[in-house]
């Protein structure tokens, strides 16, 4: 088992990194906050996808399995799935309409987490100014962390939002 300690905000960057690991013979097995566990050895190569789960998650997961998708692990609202690499690319969303809906769900997710961190950051900053001593230092650090995450989320949100907009423009001209 090869362990990595890392964190990602942008799920596309995370996905790219996991797929690079797979090419190097390290297959993802476990995901916890800031932790990735890979299994080494084995010649099989896989394509991994990170998918935001909809509300009816169990139904969705069962369906993915019935469609030949292997569920690797679930972390919070995200599921890590894979399929053996072939010449065909492995995509879960293959037409304009479903991609647009999917990107909309992701941008909403980023947006809510961003607002949460923004509020937490302001609250921590407020506690820092109100408090004294070591305890308020913790608030200051938490606040900094919250604002840092807000910035990262903002860029991730903008990226997905732009992708969605481009798809919507194309969709208007060339409907599926």
């Amino acid at each position: 088992m090869k362990r990595y300690f890392r964190g990602f905000i942008d799920y596309e960057k995370e996905e790219k990194w996991i797929n690079e690991q797979s090419q190097k013979g390290r297959q993802l097995k476990k995901v916890f906050p800031f932790y990735y566990g890979f299994e080494e050895g084995g010649s099989e190569k896989y394509t991994y996808r990170i998918v935001l789960l909809p509300k009816d998650r169990q139904d969705y997961l069962d369906f993915l399995e019935s469609a030949g998708v292997e569920i690797v692990c679930i972390f919070n609202k995200w599921v890590y799935v894979r399929r053996k690499s072939t010449e065909e690319t492995f995509e879960l969303y293959t037409n304009y309409a479903s991609k647009i809906i999917y990107y909309k769900q992701i941008s909403h997710f980023y947006f809510y987490v961003l607002i949460f961190n923004l509020v937490a950051g302001i609250l921590n900053l407020f506690l820092f100014f109100m408090g004294e001593g070591e305890k308020s230092d913790v608030n200051a650090l938490s606040s900094l962390f919250n604002f840092f995450v807000v910035i990262l989320l903002f860029f991730a949100f903008k990226k997905i939002h732009r992708k969605k907009k481009i798809l919507q423009q194309d969709h208007g001209i060339f409907a599926d």
Binding site: E88, E91, L92, T94, S98, I101
Partner: peptide, 12 residues
């Protein structure tokens, strides 16, 4: 025509 599992799920 290659249909992704997520696309089929939404359509269904």
């Amino acid at each position: 025509v290659k249909l992704g599992a997520g696309t089929i799920y939404g359509a269904i």
